[in-house]
Lab assay of single mutants.
Amino acid sequence: SEEEIREAFRVFDKDGNGYISAADLRHVMTNLGEKLTDEEVDEMIREADIDGDGQVNYEDFVQMMTA
């Protein structure tokens, strides 16, 4: 549901600035027990970053979650 997606976005957007940065993503993945290299984190950001601004905004996140 849209509310679940919004809630998930809030979990990833640690600093609440409306964007998921590589640092935000790394933090959440580490908490989930996933040890990722910087390259892996950057690749995840690139794949999710639809508009190419280097971070994942809510619209990018929705597209990723509903793809």
Results as ranks from 00 to 15, higher is better:
S1P: 07
E2H: 09
E3I: 07
E3P: 04
E3C: 12
E3N: 12
E4N: 09
I5D: 00
I5S: 01
I5Q: 02
R6F: 04
R6H: 03
R6L: 11
E7C: 08
A8L: 11
A8Q: 07
F9C: 10
F9E: 00
F9S: 01
F9Y: 01
R10P: 00
R10E: 03
R10M: 08
V11Q: 14
V11S: 10
V11T: 08
F12W: 07
F12V: 04
F12M: 06
D13S: 02
D13G: 01
D13K: 00
K14W: 10
K14P: 08
D15G: 07
D15R: 05
N17L: 08
N17P: 00
N17M: 07
N17T: 12
N17E: 04
G18V: 00
G18W: 02
Y19C: 05
Y19N: 03
Y19S: 05
Y19M: 12
I20Q: 01
I20N: 00
I20G: 01
S21W: 06
S21D: 08
S21V: 03
A22G: 07
A23D: 13
A23W: 07
A23S: 14
A23C: 09
D24W: 03
D24P: 01
D24N: 06
L25V: 13
L25W: 06
L25S: 02
R26A: 10
H27I: 09
H27T: 10
V28F: 03
V28N: 00
V28M: 03
M29L: 15
M29Y: 05
M29V: 08
M29P: 00
T30K: 15
T30H: 13
T30I: 12
N31Y: 13
N31W: 14
L32E: 01
G33R: 14
G33N: 14
G33S: 14
G33C: 15
G33L: 13
E34L: 14
K35L: 10
L36H: 06
L36P: 04
L36C: 07
L36E: 02
L36A: 04
T37F: 04
T37V: 03
T37L: 04
D38R: 12
D38P: 14
D38K: 14
E39I: 12
E39Y: 11
E39G: 07
E40L: 06
E40T: 06
E40C: 10
E40G: 03
V41P: 01
V41E: 02
V41L: 13
D42S: 09
D42I: 09
E43P: 01
E43H: 12
E43Y: 13
E43R: 15
M44Q: 02
I45F: 11
I45R: 03
I45M: 12
R46M: 06
R46A: 08
R46W: 04
R46C: 06
E47S: 15
E47C: 14
A48G: 06
A48M: 08
D49L: 13
I50H: 11
D51I: 09
D51Q: 10
D51P: 05
D51W: 13
G52C: 10
G52P: 13
G52I: 11
D53P: 03
D53K: 13
D53C: 08
G54S: 05
G54W: 04
Q55P: 04
Q55E: 06
V56W: 03
N57V: 06
N57W: 14
N57G: 07
Y58T: 02
E59H: 09
E59F: 06
E59V: 06
E59M: 08
V62D: 00
V62S: 02
V62M: 09
M65F: 06
M65I: 11
T66L: 14
A67Q: 12
A67G: 07
